[in-house]
């Protein structure tokens, strides 16, 4: 039996698609924001004077880099209710995705911190900056420049990874593709549409990153 394309048969499901795309986007944006926060903490732990903190930070990064996201999502999904914490599938997936992304984010931020020359810390120290002033005015602006591009890549990685949330009952784009595909037998069409949604989201992030970067760093490109 030959297969006839029929995007028309998908029309009734487009409303759900909008909601699904929104869920994908929201999940990814929140995960990125939260994982920047946690990743910064872990990166600072890895530069701490305390051996225990350094070890813990390193262990966290290695565990997250070497364990499948899907397994982490399942653990959060099944463990939290068992520990008495009831939450929506969305929030549970958000936690899993954030924990995972924070592992990579910590490495990105650490690389950014390492790229700040020791002379910067010395110059600031010689001028009597406190630790907070030093990070706020001298280190962070420089780290931000270094991690700006990798941050964009991580954003895209998180958008793609958020598709796994479908396995823990979040209604986002991948789960839209599967439910609509199996109820309408239109898997090719749903695949094409889902792929386009992801491609568009990724391209928006990508082009947005480049455009904003041009505006933010109007001043000389290479300053070292």
């Amino acid at each position: 039996m030959p297969y006839y394309f029929s995007f028309r048969s998908i029309y009734p499901y487009l409303g759900d698609l909008a909601a699904a795309a929104q869920a994908t986007l929201l999940l990814s944006v929140l995960a990125i924001v939260l994982s920047v926060a946690i990743g910064s903490g872990v990166a600072l732990m890895r530069r701490s004077d305390s051996r225990l903190l350094r070890f813990t930070g390193g262990l966290y990064v290695e565990v997250m880099r070497n364990t499948p996201l899907l397994v982490i999502l399942y653990i959060v999904y099944f463990a939290l209710p068992q520990l008495g914490l009831r939450m929506s599938p969305f929030n549970s997936a958000l936690i899993g995705l954030t924990l995972n992304s924070a592992g990579y984010m910590a490495e990105i931020i650490r690389a950014g911190l390492v790229a700040v020359p020791p002379g910067q810390f010395e110059a600031a120290a010689s001028q009597g900056f406190t630790r907070v002033q030093l990070y706020r005015h001298i280190v962070l602006p420089q780290v931000f420049r270094t991690i700006y591009a990798p941050l964009g890549n991580q954003f895209i990685a998180v958008i793609l990874a958020s598709s796994l949330a479908s396995a823990v009952a979040v209604e986002e784009v991948a789960s839209w593709m599967q439910t609509v595909g199996s109820s309408s037998f239109r898997f090719f069409e749903t695949f094409v549409i889902a792929a386009v949604v992801y491609l568009v989201l990724c391209q928006i992030v990508n082009l947005g990153r480049i455009a904003i970067g041009r505006w933010l760093f109007r001043q000389p490109e290479a300053y070292r």
Binding site: M1, Y3, I156, L160, A161, S163, L164, S166, V173, A174, M177, Q178, G181, S182, F185, F187, F188, F191, A194, A195, Y198, L199, C202, Q203
Partner: peptide
């Protein structure tokens, strides 16, 4: 670029659920 910009999961869904329908 295509396979770098879409999730593996939807590729898997297509290969597993879609191929029988589309290509038999």
């Amino acid at each position: 670029e295509f396979f770098r910009s879409i999730p593996i999961l939807i590729v898997l869904f297509f290969v597993f659920f879609g191929m029988p329908l589309v290509f038999g």
